[in-house]
Simulated assay, not measured.
Amino acid sequence: MAISPKLLNDGERIVVSCRTHVKALFGPIVVLLLVLIGGIVLTVLEIGNDTVDKTINYAAWVIMAAVAVWWVVRPFLKWWTTTYTFTNRRLMFRTGFIAKEGRTIPLNRISGVDFEIDLLDRIFGCGTLVVTDASEAGRVELHDIPRVEQVQKVVSEELHRQATGGRADDGT
């Protein structure tokens, strides 16, 4: 998902844009399945028709809906609205649906781009992109980036291109 073109300056172009790998939604999917199974079991096991049983049933459904909103809808919206974008001038990450939050790091302040891949990341084809910059924070970790090795390569090439003033490296 690319960022809005109105956020780009004149002459700025997108080099890489992505969001967190879909594996970030596996936990919320499990919670959703458990809530649905609980709701089905609750509905099937409804024994009486008296008001107390119906009230307990409705209260349980309200609690399950609250659980679904907090542990399913909220993480999905966070995943959907979070983007990481490298342009030829800066790294931007933006998140938020109603209340938005963002951070920008100029590429000329980035001193290194590394990646880390553990066993689970390797299975899903993602990893952590580690951006080292000249700020007091010094290190920004972008977790669960799809195809992290290719992203690291493209960003490193852009950093090298800027460091050499756009000259081709002839290997000498």
Rank of each mutant, 00 (worst) to 15 (best):
I123G: 06
G96Q: 10
A66R: 15
Q150E: 15
Q150I: 15
T95V: 06
F97V: 04
V140R: 03
I145D: 07
V67H: 12
R139S: 01
R109M: 09
T83P: 03
R94Q: 11
R103E: 06
L120W: 12
V73A: 00
V73L: 00
T104N: 12
A66K: 14
D114C: 11
A137D: 05
S111T: 13
F97M: 04
L129K: 05
S111M: 08
Y84K: 03
L77C: 04
I98Y: 09
W70M: 08
I117F: 06
F93H: 11
G102N: 04
W71A: 11
R139G: 00
F93C: 03
I105P: 02
T132H: 05
W79I: 03
F86L: 10
T87C: 11
G127Y: 14
I110D: 00
D121W: 09
G127M: 13
I105F: 02
D114F: 08
A65C: 07
G127S: 14
E136P: 15
G125M: 05
G138E: 09
I117H: 04
V73E: 00
A99N: 14
F86R: 09
Q152C: 15
T128Y: 03
L129C: 04
F115D: 10
T81M: 00
A66H: 11
V73H: 00
G127N: 13
A65Y: 05
L142E: 00
G125A: 08
G125S: 04
A99G: 12
R94L: 09
L142C: 01
K100A: 10
V67G: 07
V73M: 01
G112M: 14
D144P: 12
G125E: 08
C126W: 12
P106S: 13
M92Y: 08
I117L: 09
L77P: 03
Q150N: 14
R109N: 09
W80P: 00
L119Q: 14
V67L: 10
V72A: 05
R94S: 07
P146G: 09
E136K: 15
K153L: 10
A99R: 10
P75V: 01
I145W: 08
T87L: 06
L107T: 08
G102M: 06
E149T: 13
R122F: 13
Q150K: 15
V151I: 07
L107N: 09
R147Y: 15
F93E: 04
L142V: 00
G112T: 14
V148R: 07
N88G: 05
A137T: 11
M92P: 03
I123F: 08
I145C: 06
R90F: 05
R74K: 11
W71M: 12
R147Q: 13
E136H: 15
F93T: 06
F86I: 05
T132L: 01
A66V: 11
S135A: 10
V131F: 00
P106K: 10
E149A: 11
L129M: 04
W79D: 01
W70P: 02
R94D: 04
R122S: 12
A134H: 15
R74P: 02
E141W: 08
T104S: 12
G96M: 07
S111C: 14
